[in-house]
């Protein structure tokens, strides 16, 4: 695997990924042609509501899908190697941990309750950095310090249940640092945290991006968090990509009706209830997804063609992509 990847080069390229789940009720068409490129040193946000496929995309990347998942096409290239073709053993040895790490919404279920935080991080240190006992312990303390945990010696000997949610999530990050991963996939990492703790956590991630050129695929449903931390944003809806742009461009100049709806339903943009706009209807079930553009039943701009033809992702300005037949009319 080539290692001469520089800041700004593509690190992870997901290309035209199609995926289905077999269920008793029928086939769930979870992903329908997803394209995402995460560059080295970039924080790439993926936003969407429940069931839009944002988590499934990340699980596919690490080969963590359930048995009922069927990949129907596409590639997931990491440093040019297709991860979908890699066997389990190689994924475990070469990818998970030392190249790509993942953290989830609920850190308490990711940590082992019967080992102390320090011991769990040490496992990674021993595998990836040094198997000298003394040195490993020192490296663990360094990692704990790097994620701004107060009193690392104290945290080292604590069991997960003795740590708060924010501290647990930082232990997870320390573990990732110990693996020297190049890409972090973060799936709603701050949803369970208080705003003050969330602010500390986002600051740490931003710092790691600066100091280590860490790339992050950041999955969330929170527009405010996206604006806070991401460089580039992909908006997903019903297993398709609706829009993709630089974060400033997306907030200043959103073109997909769904993106606009999302931005306008965030409290903070609107200061009173009357100003809130809501997106009519609900997220579609993907067993029988709407034909054409999957957003058409909820879209005020929808016309006949939206029911018939899936809109292609079109580059309307440099690095600004929209999948909508009528983006030029959207305001």
């Amino acid at each position: 695997m080539s290692s001469d990847i520089h800041v700004g080069d593509p690190l992870l390229v997901i290309e035209d990924l199609k995926l289905e789940f077999k269920t008793e009720e029928g086939t769930v068409k979870a992903l329908d042609g997803i394209n995402i490129t995460v560059k080295k040193g970039e924080i790439h946000g993926v936003i969407g509501e429940t069931g839009c496929g944002k988590s499934v995309t990340s699980l596919t990347t690490l080969g963590l899908l359930d048995n009922n998942a069927r990949i129907r096409g596409g590639e997931v290239l990491y440093k040019g190697v297709n991860l979908l073709k890699m066997n389990d053993e190689d994924l475990r040895q070469k990818i998970r941990g030392n190249e790509i790490s993942m953290i989830f919404q609920n850190p308490s279920t990711s940590l082992n309750p019967v080992y102390t935080a320090g011991e769990q991080i040490k496992e990674s240190v021993v595998i990836y950095q040094s198997d000298d006992k003394k040195e490993a312990q020192k490296l663990v303390l360094d990692e704990l310090d790097r994620v701004k945990l107060p009193d690392p010696e104290d945290v080292y000997d604590k069991y997960p249940h003795e740590l708060s949610g924010g501290m647990q999530q930082r232990v997870m990050i320390a573990m990732m640092l110990a693996c020297n991963s190049n890409l972090l996939i973060a799936d709603e990492p701050t949803t369970a945290l208080d705003v003050s703790i969330q602010a500390q956590f986002l600051k740490i991630l931003r710092g790691l991006k600066e100091s280590r050129d860490l790339s992050i695929l950041y999955i969330t449903h929170d527009m405010a968090v996206i604006s806070e931390i991401c460089d580039v944003v992909t908006v997903m809806y019903g297993g398709q990509i609706a829009e993709k742009a630089d974060v400033h461009e997306l907030f200043k100049n959103p073109k997909h009706p769904y993106t606009i709806g999302l931005i306008h339903s965030v409290p903070g943009v609107m200061e009173s209830i009357e100003e809130f706009e809501t997106i009519p209807g609900t997220v579609p079930r993907l067993i029988n997804p709407p034909s054409g553009c999957r957003f058409h039943p909820r879209c005020e701009y929808a016309r006949e063609i939206c029911k018939e033809k899936k809109p292609e992702l079109e580059e309307i300005e440099k690095d600004h992509f929209v999948a909508c037949h009528f983006w030029e009319e959207v305001e």
Partner: peptide
Amino acid sequence: QALFKSVPQPDPDEKVEAPLTGQV
């Protein structure tokens, strides 16, 4: 004051500070 400063706003030009250190 500190709590409000921790709240992310949906505006990429405005970054939150993390004025509240430590835990409750």
